[in-house]
């Protein structure tokens, strides 16, 4: 690709990122699992068309925070969320909000690729069908192709759309899951360690995909790989013991972080 256009696109994206307000705003977010408090008054805003990486040691609350963003925690009975989270200014914990619709707007990709045990085509078409996004078979075909194209998987699977999604390689399965998330035209994509079960080549493909998706979507990614956070994100938030320790530009975060705990964590030192 032409270097100039690439740089120009980057610049335009950065501009857009600064112009637009926050896509999601988390204010004083606390999460309790029964008696145990997992998150302590987290204030974290997610910028539009930006990849935000959440890092921190295991059990620090980064996945918990991620899951509050599309109310995944609702599925856990003992879980209670306080504080306020908005999507384009609307409180997503408002009782009037339709959770199914919310999850269509805020999609999720999990650690382990989890395609439905159905054909590749059906994996993608399932979401659009239940949300009534396609009026005809042709419509649906288009959605399936566009989603697979975006996920960089089309060329690899276009001749075997009727084969089972579980027959793909791990990396392909994960990109299928990303295509499935994209199919319902979400605005935000949450990714919970999307590459931890993938080999380096599949990881690179997914990272390349994340980089491209940034122009159309807002992405929040939880990762244990510091290098991955440094490679794919523009903003990084560091969690520790349920608290948000520091949120900063990724470039600053990995060269000269403000907080000592961030410093110790990313350098692999004892805290």
């Amino acid at each position: 690709m032409n270097m100039m256009t690439e740089a120009a696109v980057e610049k335009a994206l950065d501009q857009r990122m600064n112009d637009l307000s926050y896509k999601m705003i988390g204010k004083d977010v606390s999460v309790y699992y029964g008696e145990k408090r997992a998150l302590f008054d987290v204030n974290l805003n997610v910028r539009q068309n930006t990849v935000t990486a959440l890092i921190g040691p295991s059990g620090c609350g980064k996945s918990t925070f991620l899951r509050t963003l599309n109310r995944m925690n609702d599925t856990i009975d003992s879980c209670r969320v306080t504080g306020r989270i908005t999507l384009d200014g609307d409180d997503i914990y408002d009782p009037a909000i339709d959770v199914v619709e919310l999850r269509a707007r805020v999609g999720m990709v999990f650690q382990k690729p989890n395609p439905f045990p159905k054909s590749i085509y059906e994996n993608i078409s399932y979401g659009p069908r239940i949300h009534g996004l396609a009026r005809s078979k042709t419509d649906m075909d288009q959605i399936v192709e566009a989603s697979l194209q975006r996920a960089g998987l089309w060329n690899e699977v276009k001749d075997r759309l009727q084969e089972s999604g579980t027959g793909l390689s791990g990396g392909q399965q994960q990109r299928l899951c990303i295509a499935r998330a994209i199919a319902v035209s979400p605005e935000v994509i949450l990714m919970d360690e999307p590459c931890s079960a993938l080999d380096p080549i599949a990881t690179a493909k997914v990272e390349e995909l994340i980089h491209e998706l940034r122009s159309n979507y807002t992405i929040v990614i939880v990762t244990h790989s510091m290098q991955q956070a440094a490679r794919v994100s523009q903003r990084t938030a560091m969690f520790h013991l349920g608290q948000l320790v520091e949120e900063n530009d990724t470039d600053k975060m990995f060269t000269n972080p403000d907080d000592q705990r961030t410093q110790d964590y990313i350098m692999g030192r004892f805290g």
């Binding site: 510091m226 290098q227 440094a230 990995f254 060269t255 000269n256 972080p257 961030t262 410093q263 990313i266 350098m267 692999g268």
Partner: peptide, 10 residues
């Protein structure tokens, strides 16, 4: 080998 960060990298 280590992919150093922050102060280590500097």
């Amino acid at each position: 080998k280590r992919q150093p960060m922050a102060a280590d990298l500097r």
